[in-house]
């Protein structure tokens, strides 16, 4: 049986991890490669690097981070952030990334999903969706630019279109849950996951190990992503997995 995946996410700016990281025995707490190797050893099933560099130089640095990471770890990893052309995807995949995450650029130019999946295979293309509940609609709306801009697009519709265009997976972030540590957005996750035939990674709101069990059982998620609870060592990947195993969830 397919195991549920636990995915730590690292925010990288100009080749350095930002947001606090509380690991002991680190030579360099800001080195994404060293942290990736630690998460690999702790039992993470995949990793996501989110490049939040604002400059061309920063993005060029990411290619080097990807190359070094690919030589260090034995689990798959996705790179997202600021990727807006098939050429960008090619550079990162050649450097050793397994998947490419696209978000704002996919909304602006949905052909990017089609072209990317046709060129590299659907399994390489992860469409990231930032969604927020719209009370007027009674469903969720897609936001872009790190959650700053409303698009007027319904999240479930967009998820379906992304799948139709060849996305291999969706990374679904609930803007309502993100940062609350009150748990994943079960309603959003189950609504989207039940509407598509591709895997859905739930993101936003993880505060403890129990939240992961909920999003797998009730949220129908295939994988769950978290950043701060892992970085600040509030709970380790291994602890989450032990808790999931205890609740009968199939994990590696």
């Amino acid at each position: 049986m397919l195991a549920k995946r636990i995915i730590p996410c690292l925010d990288v700016k100009d080749g350095r991890v930002v947001k606090g990281v509380n690991f002991v025995n680190l030579r360099d707490a800001g080195d994404p490669v060293e942290l990736a190797a630690i998460y690999d050893r702790e039992g993470a099933d995949e990793l996501v690097f989110l490049d939040i560099s604002a400059s061309v130089e920063g993005r060029a640095t990411m290619v080097d981070v990807v190359r070094r990471t690919a030589g260090e770890i034995t689990i798959p990893f996705t790179v997202g952030g600021g990727i807006s052309a098939v050429e960008d995807m090619k550079r990162l995949l050649r450097a050793g990334a397994d998947k490419i995450g696209i978000n704002t650029a996919a909304i602006r130019n949905p052909d990017l999903i089609t072209d990317g999946s046709r060129t590299f295979g659907t399994q390489c293309i992860v469409v990231a969706i930032d969604a927020k509940y719209n009370a007027e609609w009674g469903e969720w709306e897609v936001f872009t630019h790190g959650g700053r801009n409303a698009t007027g697009i319904r999240a479930i519709e967009w998820a379906r279109e992304a799948e139709r265009r060849g996305a291999g997976e969706l990374l679904l972030t609930s803007m309502d849950a993100d940062g609350t540590k009150d748990g994943f957005d079960i309603k959003l996750t189950s609504a989207v996951s039940g509407s598509v035939g591709i895997p859905v990674i739930a993101s936003g709101g993880a505060g403890n190990a129990g939240h992961f069990a909920d999003v797998f059982a009730e949220g129908l998620a295939d994988a769950a992503l978290a950043a701060s609870i892992f970085h600040y060592k509030e709970v380790s990947v291994q602890e989450v997995k032990t808790a999931l195993h205890g609740k009968g969830v199939n994990v590696r």
Binding site: M1, L2, A3, R5, D45, T122, G197, P199, D222
Partner: peptide
């Protein structure tokens, strides 16, 4: 009636 690709860790 299941998700494709078969993606992830399997035993």
């Amino acid at each position: 009636d299941y998700k494709v690709p078969h993606m992830g860790w399997n035993e």
